[in-house]
Design a binder for these strands. Structure first.
Lengths: 222, 222, 222, 222
DNA sequence: GATGAATGAGTATTCATTCAT
DNA sequence: AATGAATGAATACTCATTCAT
């Protein structure tokens, strides 16, 4: 069993720690069996708790699924933030964020699987999962004349491209081509011509060292 | 209860008719309750059959879901074919087909709902659902220099745009803006500049009378 | 409903008590309808529980059948032990044990029926059911020169004689002749001549008061 | 699929042939899945018929099971008869018949399995299966002073020994020791001393060549 | 006699959820 | 907060059997 969120909560109170442990356990079970097939008994068992304990922390499985994917998304966003603080240009931020999002998610298969499945279950984008993106796109739209309306349709379309990509990456393993093309498609939707899009993506991908995963996203993004 | 596929099978043997009736019934129940929540009993009851009859025709609910969405997709494809026979230009075909696909699907809410939900359940595009598109894109790629690779990643990305659009249309009702933007986004992904994309879509949408649904797709496309 | 095993577990925790109650209930239903025909619902209903409770204690009906016949066999063996502690001679022990086994089993028709049916379902002797016998036979084989191999074939053959007898006794009621002949046949198989066998069985049967069942097995055996 | 009884019925009318085919098919399915688990659909499918056809020939599965095991028993009895016509002494006839019964049954695993399972299902001996034995035992009882009552208890006890043996032989393959001991046990039950029993069995087994199965039962028995 | 589509009764099993300890 | 035994609703699925053709 992973112990990412349990560890993260070590300083906090018992309640928070138990919650973190349940989320860690859930991520494992969700990713292995799928959210639908996962049973609460299995999750509590893996967490080393009685099944009743679950209900002291979550309303039901869906609540847990939301909390789990939310925790993952938040954690990814946190890592993104750290690494993008010095990036000013909107378009670059979008590319770096998307690229890094996929890379970080994929660095932990279970995370990626939970994100993908939860996305499918809810179909509509969990605003929080992609919330970071809206600001960057709006920033880009101001800096250049993109000629796009930044609304939920646009965000959903872009998010769906990323999710299709993430699913592919899970299936086929990390292939930079998928990242590149997905980012280019996103920029094209945002109004860049293919040539412009390609150039923007190259600025980012040229520097990236994807092999060692999330740890060097920072260096790859300047 | 709808009786589209039952009627379609009127000439055939009893086995085929029963199957068609079950699919009609399933589409109704699926769209009303969702595939997950639908029960076999409800489907057979609506179809006016004993529940055991179901198992003479389908292995389980998933088998039926696949058959139902497959029948819908096939039927839509059939209608598309009829109406696009005189269109030669690849890009126009893509626009018309996408536009008409969404329009026809939406002309029968239950169909659209089943397509959307089945798409989400299976995540990967049922090749058949969008098979018509590959040929048109390849045709377009030959006629112009699109500079895209026509592979499954591209098709999945395009399909996901359409599905996001279909979901929106189901939620918000037919809004031409969604059709227009989705088609433009698709063309942008295919390598057209925003300006070109807009022009291509206008060629189609200018003529369309979407209000009366599938019946005048033909006239709307030339 | 009988309450033998429930009562026996009165001192123990709730889990054990519930288990005992289920076994009591199962024995009743099994004996009345047969194991095959018994439904879990009926068993839990008679036990005054929700059907789901069953699955907290047993994997499925077969698991329960094994547990039930095992509990019966164990209980019979326990009663046998008490009453044979002062018997030293192997052959006498075999006769007394077999005789008492049949008598005790028959003193509770439901027990006998469950034993018989479970024996038939599993065909091979549940080692535990007749485990008491092996030791006595080996003891007899040492004390006299029986000239038999004590292996599972022998035990199965002897057990099958007892089960045929038990079935007859259930059908026709307690008839001492069946006990006598079955014991004689067993001894013959063990290598005694008909005359010897007859004498050995008479030593036991002469004293027995079978009418009042298990309660006076003790007196009957010395 | 075997075609023993179908072939046997080649000369007869269509009705008899269809019946034979169903029995052949049933024996295969019964032996593979067990009688309980066998479904009529499977049996008719293997027989190459529609399921409805079954009910033109048998009342239900149990009827078919009785017919199948009966046909097997009858066939074995027929083969026995052929080979024992020249044997006059009762005891020898019992030994030869039992020995040959087991050998012939085992020569066709499916036959043996169906016999064993059907015996377990009915518990009481299907009279017909062992009918041949009563006459021989009575003959033996007249020729010597056996001192046994020839009644159904005796026959059931003897039959159960044979069935235990047959089950073992199915499990462990043909082992002459099992045949020898089973026959000796039977004779002991019939009143022979161990020494006499051994001698009688040796008369038979000494000549037998069991390896090549049923075909040389005749030669092996005189 | 054979066919095979339709029937529908019947039951095991899961698992989220509660609550007394 | 944690425990874990008990709950019971809810449903898919099988398969013997019928009967119109």
């Amino acid at each position: 069993m992973q112990n990412y969120f349990r560890t993260q909560a070590l300083g906090a109170g018992k309640r928070v720690r138990t919650r973190g442990t349940l989320i860690d356990s859930a991520i494992d079970v969700f990713s292995e069996k799928g959210i639908e097939e996962a049973s609460i008994n299995e999750i509590t068992a893996l967490a080393g708790m009685a099944n009743g304990t679950f209900y002291n922390h979550f309303k039901d499985k869906d609540d847990l699924a939301v909390a789990s994917s939310g925790a993952i998304a938040l954690e990814i966003a946190r890592q993104l933030d750290l690494r993008m603080s010095d990036l000013d240009e909107g378009i670059s931020r979008v590319v770096v964020a998307s690229w890094a999002f996929l890379t970080i998610a994929l660095s932990n298969r279970a995370w990626a699987q939970v994100l993908v499945e939860q996305y499918q279950r809810h179909a509509e984008v969990d605003e929080s999962t992609f919330s970071y993106m809206r600001a960057d796109i709006e920033r880009a739209a101001k800096q250049r004349e993109l000629g796009v309306v930044v609304d939920t349709l646009l965000l959903e379309q872009l998010a769906s491209l990323m999710m299709v990509a993430l699913r592919r990456l899970l299936r086929e393993g990390m292939r930079e081509e998928i990242l590149v093309r997905t980012c280019e498609y996103m920029l094209r939707i945002l109004g860049l011509t293919p040539v412009q899009a390609k150039k923007e993506v190259e600025k980012v991908s040229g520097h990236s060292l994807l092999e060692d995963g999330a740890s060097n996203i920072i260096s790859s993004s300047e």
